[in-house]
Amino acid sequence: MPVAIAPPEVKPQTGREDRVPASGGPGGGSGSDGGPGRRGDGGGRRLGPDSYQLGMWLALASISMMFIGFSSAYILGQGTNSQWRAMAAPPYVWVNTVILLASSLTLELARRAGAATEVKRWMTLTCVLGAAFLAGQLWVWGLLADQGIYLSGNPHSSFFYLLTGVHAVHLLGGVAALVYLTARAWISAARVPAGTSLNVTAIYWHFMDGLWIYLMVLLFFWR
């Protein structure tokens, strides 16, 4: 066990709410020693989930509110805007969707893997898939721009760029966290991520995955 709780390092990758605890300590995720989550009311009763996880859920609540704000703007615009021309989904976004779903799967496999080498392998694959998704998104935007569909085109294309763009910024934070954890694991065998740091990153990553599905439904299937 580490002698002290390290200061919860926080990496502001994107200037948004993304945060990733970087040094939760090995095996520190569950049980009685999870970070600074402390006790209340006598008797050693734990007062809630681990602080990092709680913090992450709160961050996600906040991110959700932002996207609810965007969604209400979207639905209002769709209902009232006379200039609204729905664009078709660029086919490649579905490939991207599959890549993102696959990355969630590999991350989950990493989380459940026992041996350190396996954890590292799945983590690396997750990083690659995450990066591939972002690259794919860049490519989709380029493709659309070539077709003359820009941010400032009609309201629907504005929303497509806006929503996928804000999502990508958030995902970039997730990729940075994953790369950090993975790189650390490769450099030092003792720091193969497990427990809190990986769990919290996984919560974030799966949430971004779910958010992506939601955005696709909103953009291309709603009504």
């Binding site: 600074p36 989550g37 402390r38 006790r39 209340g40 009311d41 006598g42 007062l47 809630g48 681990d50 602080s51 709680l54 913090g55 709160l58």
Partner: peptide, 13 residues
Amino acid sequence: ITTVLNMRTKGMS
């Protein structure tokens, strides 16, 4: 929020 929920000392219900 996290501090209030998780960091109270013993007996601070």
